[in-house]
Write a protein that binds this DNA or RNA. Sequence first.
DNA 1: TATTGTTATACTCTATAACTATA
DNA 2: TATAGTTATAGAGTATAACAATA
Lengths: 158, 158
Amino acid sequence: MAAPSRRSPEDDAGPSEHGLEVFVGYRLRRAWLAIQADLVVALRPFDLRMVTYTALVLVKDNPGLSQAQLAALMDMERPNLVAIIEELSTRGLVRRDRASGDRRAYALHVTAAGEALCQQATQAVAAHEARLTAGVSDADRRVLEAALARIRHNAERG
Amino acid sequence: MAAPSRRSPEDDAGPSEHGLEVFVGYRLRRAWLAIQADLVVALRPFDLRMVTYTALVLVKDNPGLSQAQLAALMDMERPNLVAIIEELSTRGLVRRDRASGDRRAYALHVTAAGEALCQQATQAVAAHEARLTAGVSDADRRVLEAALARIRHNAERG
DNA sequence: TATTGTTATACTCTATAACTATA
DNA sequence: TATAGTTATAGAGTATAACAATA
């Protein structure tokens, strides 16, 4: 009888990514990319991208916000927000009022149409979330959220 | 005595993002962005980006892989891999041998230098991971990984 | 015909410098 | 002088079309 040949797992299983799967960061990235792809589809019927939806929700939740404040909240640079607000404004979803007391700044508010679209889109996002987290218990979800918060905190305190 | 005024939480706390924090996807994205920023720093001493590190690890773990196979493994398009392999090849970290039996394809292998750099970089990435997951118990980490796998699976089965 | 690696190209997201008008 | 919004621009990352060589 011949000695067992030394065969790597790849011989049968094909190329593998398990060398990277020891890293939580890798698993997190793959999960995020999968979520993102699904979320883009969920928002498409409303003609919203992730970044425009995010801006809409934050303006709705923080009426009177300036663009600089919104940019800080979204962790993006002020210049990159200009086109986003311009798009939401052109579509009549967000109003750019001049801030009382500072003629440089805008005071951002959602319009009635913006509020309505935001509500519809949020329903769709909630449905997308429910589908993606199906099979994750409430207890496990709490652990997940706590772990994500801990990781984010550890990373951000440099 | 005056009636209590209706004040939103923002009056005292400033702009808030909690309208988005009900979504696991949002928390996951923020955690990933924080990890990513830290990971970029961890890989900088080795002059590796995430994408070049990933390619290096996968070639090391799957010797003889073709570029098309590697692109599929990395979930990216073949054209975008060309410059990455070119860079790794120019730096002497990866060899592009012609595949025996198919003169169109390359058989990718890491060089000794590539293996050494990969090992060093992996140590740094492991240290970065240990720092970011500090305070997450082994049990919670298993829950985290299972939840991420479930979410990814739910998303990818479309 | 189909596939491998490649080129060219375009689109999104993001980051920086510099301008204007205010403060 | 500093800040708000803006413009222009550049760099990643990613996606598609099309080509030559090979299957």
